[in-house]
Nucleic acid binder design. Structure first.
Length: 478
RNA sequence: CGGAGUAUAGCUCAGUCUGGUAGAGCGCUACGUUCGGGACGUAGAGGUCGUAGGUUCGAAUCCUGUUACUCCGACCA
């Protein structure tokens, strides 16, 4: 059986992934190294993801704002761990004017900035500076801010969506009066991410706290949601940090308490990025292309009229009318009346992962029936139903597909988690080529022998087991 | 930042060794036959061969410089 994407997942997973992105028309590599152009279809998915996330962020009492792209270098210097974490991947703006010199446009040597700016790799510092002025009294707390922006981290090994030099994300930054509140909020946003991925992306997660070795630069606690891709590798899909008082002290975020004492506040930050899209694609898609959960599918249903010359107009109109009826049920519907051959249209939308395909031939137009095929189940799911039946079941069918996609993904994830008792067991498993997450006593990983395994098998500690933090999950990762 | 490679049509690449004035497949356009899991025929459009210089009667091809990108390693949402 010929597949739309070659090579297949089994043959070469990372090449399959690259070709999937091209075939589904999601994005392409940009002329600028490490950057990608997200194409309209890919961006439509991101917009739906973003809107769903934004609702949840606002429901958590957070306000959106927008801070500058450029950050004074000196700001980074104020938090020692933080600067160490980002210094080696910072892009720096040094000039403010171009000049034609010898016929070549270049930065004007006479327009050098005395204080250069860093293009934000993350905004803890500049938001911290603002918060130091905005937070005065206990009445100002908690203060919860979020922004949807692009950031830049100069990456040596970019991969589309998973790791690009520029990426889009949301970064939330909250301030609290007490550590208890701050830590509870970091955990709350962490749970929000896990729920979001389950309900919106139909993607299960392994949620837990990062070990000290893997923590965010400048955080006391980092809570992560890790996903397991179909090839068994881990993807860090979102993190929420309890920053303690590191940034409050570095940026002088202080408030006057009810007791009349001036004291440092406690901050958190939490983020998810377009990387989530990479995870979404690698969790659900198959050898024929993208498979999208209905909640974030730009088109949930595509209607393809199988036209012949003599009935083109009538059938197209009939299909448009059906599309309109489905739209009245709050479904996103595309009626593809473009001038392409029917099989080409089908493959186009199969590759783009549209959840439900509806085909209408001329006889079906007369009979009042349609042929429907679920993308997640493939052509085996093809069946003929009446138009009335379709209109009746379509909204529930979307919910059902969403649920079943999650259940299948969860089953795959569970099959990729292995308990190991000893480092020897771990090494045997890795040696045999076993993929996935390995659950092992955290204590067993704090030695040179484990460091050797990290080096040899390119594994890392993903997070502690939330149910029993004496265990840690270990895996190869993206 | 180390190691290796590539640069020729929108895309993937051949042509370079042995210098003689530009090719294939896919895609695109038109017409015809087609159209329910990837169609075929015919006719077309499309490239100063990354860039600057040199050698030569003549350079995609040889020489020198330069720039960009890709892959593999160390780092990472």
């Amino acid at each position: 059986m010929k597949t739309a994407i070659t090579p297949t997942r089994a043959e070469n997973f990372s090449e399959w992934y690259q070709n999937l992105i091209i075939a589904a028309d999601l994005a392409e590599n940009a002329p600028v190294r490490g950057c990608m152009t997200i194409k309209p279809y890919g961006w439509a998915i991101w917009e739906l993801m973003r809107d769903q996330m934004d609702k949840r962020i606002k429901a958590a009492g957070v306000q959106n704002a927008n801070f500058p792209l450029l950050i004074p270098i000196a700001y980074f210097n104020r938090e020692a761990e933080h600067v160490a974490g980002f210094a080696k991947e910072a892009a720096v703006v040094t000039h403010y004017r171009l000049k034609m010199i010898d016929g070549v446009l270049q930065p004007d040597p006479d327009a050098k900035l005395t204080d250069a700016y860093v293009i934000r790799p993350t905004s803890e510092t500049i938001i911290g500076e603002a918060m130091s002025r905005w937070v005065q009294s206990w009445r100002d707390l908690p203060m919860k801010l979020n922004q949807w922006v692009n950031v830049m981290r100069w990456e040596m090994r970019p991969r589309m969506f998973l790791r690009t030099s520029e990426f889009n994300w949301q970064e939330g930054h909250n301030v609290f009066a007490t550590h208890e509140e701050a830590n509870a909020d970091a955990k709350k946003m962490h749970k929000m991410y896990a729920d979001y991925m389950r309900d919106v992306l139909a993607a299960p997660v392994v949620a837990g706290e990062k070990t000290p070795e893997e923590r965010f630069a400048g955080a006391d606690h980092t809570y992560t949601v890790e996903q397991i891709m179909q090839d068994g590798k881990a993807l860090q899909a979102g993190t929420s940090h309890d920053l303690g008082q590191h940034f409050a002290k570095s940026f002088d975020i202080k408030y006057l308490g009810t007791d009349g004492k001036l004291q440092y506040a406690w901050t958190t930050s939490w983020g998810t990025s377009t990387r989530m899209m990479g995870g979404l694609f690698m969790i659900h898609s198959d050898d024929d292309g993208l498979v999208l959960p209905p909640v974030i599918a730009p088109y949930q249903i595509v209607i393809i009229p199988i036209v012949r010359e003599e009935n083109t107009d009538a059938l197209n109109k009939y299909a448009e009318d059906l599309g309109e009826k489905l739209r009245e049920l709050d479904l996103r519907v595309l009626v593809d009346t473009s001038d392409m051959r029917a099989p080409d249209k089908m493959w186009k939308w199969i590759k783009r992962g549209v959840p439900l395909r509806v085909e209408i031939g001329s006889r079906e137009m007369e009979n009042g029936t349609v042929t429907i095929t679920r993308r997640d189940l493939g052509k085996e799911s093809k069946q003929t139903v009446s138009v009335d039946e379709l209109l009746k079941i379509a909204p529930d069918l979307m919910k059902q597909m969403q649920r079943e996609m999650y259940e299948r993904a969860l089953a795959r994830q569970n099959a990729q988690i292995h308990d190991v008792e000893t480092l020897a067991d771990l090494e045997h498993a890795l040696e045999r080529g076993t993929t996935g997450f390995f659950r092992i006593k955290y204590d067993l990983t704090l030695n040179a022998e484990f460091d050797g395994l990290i080096e040899k098998y390119k594994i890392s500690r993903r997070c502690l087991d939330a149910n029993d933090p004496s265990f840690v999950y270990v895996a190869k990762s993206y």
